[in-house]
Design a binder for these strands. Structure first.
Lengths: 197, 197
DNA sequence: CTTGCCATGTTGACATCGTCAATATCACGG
DNA sequence: CCGTGATATTGACGATGTCAACATGGCAAG
């Protein structure tokens, strides 16, 4: 299985092709454009062919989201590894998350569309992996306050997720004063981590 | 106009009725269930009747979201007014926001579905009103750090929005240790406001 | 080498949706 | 008393997800 060329009737590697075209459609036109039929058209197969590889549209979207979580995890690892200081690793985690969200807004949105994603072991695993990376990094940092690691993790996660969501939805567009973009987020992170100057 | 009883053919107060049934449908089954036809059925009119009051489905959803933002603003005002201390008012703002989001998850989700909401002056006004309340409360609070009011506002907003979103999507479900719910969020807020014990 | 099985594709159908156009009803102002 | 404009209805169209019936052909067992 997983052949490369199509034999005329059978495609040969439809699953991969579907995921590729679905991602392209998602990035370009948003999740609404990722219909089974549109993806099938893009791959040059009949409208019902995808059902052999993804039982429903939501199953396709779930597979997509899983792959995005894995990509994000890789990005995070790369960022974190290139930081020396323990605190810098924590910041690198958050920065990687924000960068991914702002770079691929449609993917990021899909990743949290609980109403579209099926309960799925693989997806859950990929998601949990990210959160575990965060708690792992945080547990190594000394704290002056009495909050638990989970509290700090939840706070950082919420801050980053909220910031990304609002930026994607252009909520801050009209009221950015001097500081914007990455440095804006890092200033917020300083606040949370008690590093405010 | 805005009569009460239906005359047999004409409804009399369809617009109100549509919004009421749409809200009920939304709370019960999510935004996907809020179709023009379903709302029309609930109101006991034909499938195309709503078009006289809302040009498209998204226009209906936009009107819904606007009313929710107004309700939220009222909730916030009530919470904030019952606090004496300036800092307590800021905390009351955040708590009101979180309470609303967790109380009406489907409404809260819809309020941020930029892909479903039309660019609309009334909606924008209602949204902006909320953010302005936050900056107004924040500008009265003394700060030890050098961050601007906007930075703190953005941070608080992001933290609350992220927390609500993740709670709605049950992201923290599996990993809540001792502290949960409201007190969990308040602990996070302490962190951000530099009140960590 | 042959044969038959079954994963993979195709075709056609159905219900549902948003939206539009044509038509019907009726409350109210002239 | 009448007709006109706002409001409802009916019917249609194309798009969608999904299912069932059928076609194709790669591959493994004989």
């Amino acid at each position: 299985m997983a052949r490369a060329a199509r034999t005329g009737y059978h495609h040969g590697a439809l699953r991969q092709a579907l995921l590729k075209h679905a991602t392209k459609l998602l990035d370009k036109e948003g999740v609404e454009a990722v219909t089974i039929r549109a993806v099938a058209r893009a791959a040059g197969v009949s409208h019902a062919a995808p059902i052999n590889h993804f039982e429903t549209r939501n199953a396709l979207l779930t597979a997509l989201a899983t792959s995005f979580f894995d990509n994000l995890a890789a990005d995070i690892d790369a960022h974190v590894q290139s930081a020396d200081d323990k605190l810098a690793r924590v910041r690198a985690f958050a920065v990687a998350l924000v960068e991914y969200g702002l770079r691929y807004p449609q993917r990021y949105r899909l990743m949290w569309r609980r109403d579209l994603l099926l309960p799925d072991a693989a997806l859950q695993l990929s998601m949990d992996g990210i959160y575990e990376r965060l708690t792992a990094e945080l547990s190594g940092v000394r704290r002056r306050h009495g909050k638990s690691t989970h509290t700090v993790a939840t706070a950082m996660w919420s801050l980053a997720h909220g910031y990304i969501s609002m930026r994607i939805d252009r909520m801050f567009e009209a009221r950015t004063d001097e500081v914007t973009g990455q440095s804006r987020f890092e200033a917020m992170l300083d606040l949370l981590l008690g590093l405010a100057s």
